[in-house]
Amino acid sequence: MNQPQTSAEDVRIAESSGDQNQYLTFQIGHEMFAVGILHIREIIEYGSLTTVPMMPEFVRGVINLRGSVVPVIDLSARFGRGESTVNRRSCIVILEVEGSTGDEDQLQEVGIIVDAVSEVLEIPPTEIEPAPGFGARIRADFIAGMGKVQGQFVILLNVDQALNTRELAELDSTVDAPRDGYDS
């Protein structure tokens, strides 16, 4: 019950010690991605996922995270690259994103499936290039920037966009939407 509080405190401590340049890097498919460490809540083993029917394929299901039910998103499917296959090193990274549904602007927990978690890196702002106009094969607004790490680029994700709750909710109506039943 007091988890949000502690997390808020963590964030504050983190901010004061200059953690905003720290990123967690992980692999999805063959590409490296990174998410600001302040968005990360925890990393758990992949498993005991409950599939939610009638949802698009990028919603892999829900898990029980110590008593609260958290959705798990397959980013690979979200980027239109097909469902990711689960391997031995697959993990679920629990992120905190802005819950933009309705009037509650509190943080929401969302899990993403990653093929492997690499490490936490420090990427100073000087080492971050703006996102390319095209070429990344990912919607431009999902990318916060391109980080240079040892001569390689990693894609810094804008998780608030990529996991935007409202957008995800609107995408889910694969089955008939009862309200528009009349004029069809």
Partner: peptide
């Protein structure tokens, strides 16, 4: 009853989840 989160708000036929 645990409500399903925001991304399931348009989902019909399921009213929630439980552990």
């Amino acid at each position: 009853i645990k409500p399903l989160g925001g991304i399931f708000s348009n989902l019909r036929g399921l009213s929630g989840s439980t552990i």
